[in-house]
C-alpha cells in the first residue's frame, strides 16, 4: 500500500515524542541558564595568567620571555618587557611584563601559548560567559583582567593544577639542593613560598 514508508517514519517520530516524557535520553533540552551542563575538566576557552599567593604583581609567574607572543598563530598577544627585575618563586630576579594584552576578538583558543610556555605562567580559563556592553575596548584583555590566582586555577582544573604544582615544587627543591651543595655556598636565600595556603 502506498504510504507505508511514511507511516513507519511517523511511528519513529511518535516513539521519540512520547518517549521524551519518560526516557531521559530522548529529552535532550537543557533549560539554560537555569540548568547548566557541567563542563568537562579539559574544556578550554581563553587564556589567563597565573600568580602565586595574593599579590598579582609580586607573584606573577610570567617572566616576559615572549615565547607565547612569537608562537601565537593569529598573533593576538602583545608583551612589553619591564626594565627592572623582581624575584620569582625560586628567589631569582627575573623580568616581568609591563604590558601583557590579549586581543580576545582574535584569539582562537588554540592553546599553543600554554604548550610552549616554559614557566607554567599562562593557562586556559573556562569562563565563557564574557559578554559586555561595549564592542571594542572590552575585547582587549589587559594584564589586570588576565591575572588570576593559583587558587582559582586549582579550583577549575584540579588535576592539571596538581601536576603543575608538583613540577614547580620539584624544581624549587632541586634548585635549593644545588645551592646548598655548591662549595662555599651562601645559605639558601629565603624563597617566596610557592604553595601558599
Amino acid at each position: 500500500m502506498i504510504g507505508t514508508g511514511i507511516l513507519k517514519g511517523m511511528a519513529v517520530t511518535a516513539r521519540n515524542f512520547v518517549g521524551s516524557y519518560f526516557d531521559k535520553e530522548r529529552l535532550v533540552t537543557v533549560q539554560y541558564p537555569e540548568e547548566r551542563n557541567p563542563l568537562p575538566e579539559n574544556y578550554r576557552n581563553f587564556p589567563f595568567l597565573i600568580y602565586d599567593g595574593d599579590d598579582a604583581h609580586a607573584g606573577l609567574r610570567c617572566v616576559a620571555c615572549k615565547i607565547c607572543e612569537k608562537e601565537c598563530p593569529p598573533q593576538c598577544i602583545y608583551i612589553v618587557k619591564s626594565e627592572d627585575k623582581k624575584p620569582d618563586y625560586m628567589g631569582k630576579p627575573q623580568f616581568y611584563p609591563k604590558v601583557f594584552d590579549i586581543d580576545v576578538s582574535v584569539c582562537m583558543s588554540c592553546q599553543i601559548c600554554v604548550e610552549v610556555c616554559p614557566f607554567e605562567a599562562i593557562k586556559m580559563d573556562k569562563d565563557f560567559e564574557l559578554s559586555t556592553r561595549e564592542r571594542f575596548d572590552a575585547l582587549l584583555m589587559r594584564k589586570d583582567a588576565l591575572a588570576k590566582s593559583n587558587d582559582y586555577y586549582r579550583r577549575i582544573s584540579p588535576s592539571d593544577a596538581r601536576e603543575v604544582d608538583a613540577k614547580l615544587a620539584a624544581a624549587a627543591e632541586a634548585a635549593a639542593k644545588k645551592k646548598a651543595a655548591a662549595p662555599g655556598a651562601m645559605p639558601p636565600a629565603a624563597a617566596v613560598p610557592v604553595a601558599s595556603n
Binding site: 599579590d55 598579582a56 604583581h57 609580586a58 612589553v80 609591563k98 604590558v99 589587559r142 594584564k143 589586570d144
Partner: peptide, 16 residues
C-alpha cells in the same frame, strides 16, 4: 601608549 597603568602598581599592594 606603552604602559597601561602598570606603572602605578606598587609591590605588595592589591590589584585594583
Amino acid at each position: 601608549p606603552q604602559s597601561d597603568g602598570a606603572e602605578g602598581i606598587v609591590e605588595g599592594a592589591k590589584p585594583a
